[in-house]
Design a protein around this nucleic acid. Structure first.
Lengths: 113, 113
DNA sequence: GGTTCGCGCAACCAGGAGGTTGCATTCATG
DNA sequence: CATGAATGCAACCTCCTGGTTGCGCGAACC
């Protein structure tokens, strides 16, 4: 298999790390409308160089958050929903554990029986 | 107000950035059981120095993910659920926008009528 | 009251992240 | 085929990050 395909990863830290940058978050938000865009198109809205946007897109691709296909002379990037769903479920687990702990504490503290 | 209190922040990037480290993710997972712990206690399970754990805890505190109270000679860190919920809802929005786009595409492409 | 435990502060260091510039390459197009 | 647009590659720079060590200080405890 290729060496740059981490789509089914179990560790959510790289995904969160990729999301932890305002530029990348904006790129992902733009791409989440379902329309693939070229690097030049995405660079037009960002306030930096095309090369910088390219690097951010490579990071997002490395985390599996976007996919990249070459069409003609431009490379189009598209949103990939998998890692977002996994990150969401991880946060769900953390929240659930916290809620359970709160519930246990509440049941212990107001024990009227 | 104090200069180190970003609990009600609207920008989710710092929260994701704080979550984007395996050590911090492990600390947060440990603390999500509701029990506050001291730095020394948290450092015992991590494979690094107490100072390194302290730095990570400061990062988590800066993102509002944990709260810190001094009791006696030790400082206890506790999980704070607010930012996790906000990050979760942000990912919900992204996923929702993606789902809507998919639905529009589906309705357009299989138009048998 | 001295010792030990828990912590904070500061300096220091290697490596990576984010960004720029310059140049080569590839594809579309008149 | 010559030109221009879109990209890739590489070098370079600055700053932050993650980690270490050493030391000082206040709180507990015998």
């Amino acid at each position: 298999m290729s060496s740059s395909s981490p789509p089914a990863d179990g560790d959510p830290a790289p995904v969160f790390s990729a999301l932890g940058d305002p530029t990348r978050l904006a790129l992902l938000s733009t791409l989440s409308d379902g329309q693939p865009r070229s690097i030049a198109s995405l660079s037009a809205d960002a306030g930096m160089t095309r090369q910088a946007v390219t690097k951010h897109l490579r990071v997002l691709e490395g985390a599996g958050l976007v996919s990249n296909i070459r069409v003609g002379r431009e490379s189009r990037f598209a949103f990939a929903p998998g890692p977002v769903a996994r990150a969401r479920s991880y946060l769900d687990e953390v929240s659930a554990r916290w809620d359970e702990a709160l519930e246990r504490l509440r049941a212990f503290v107001q024990r009227p029986d």
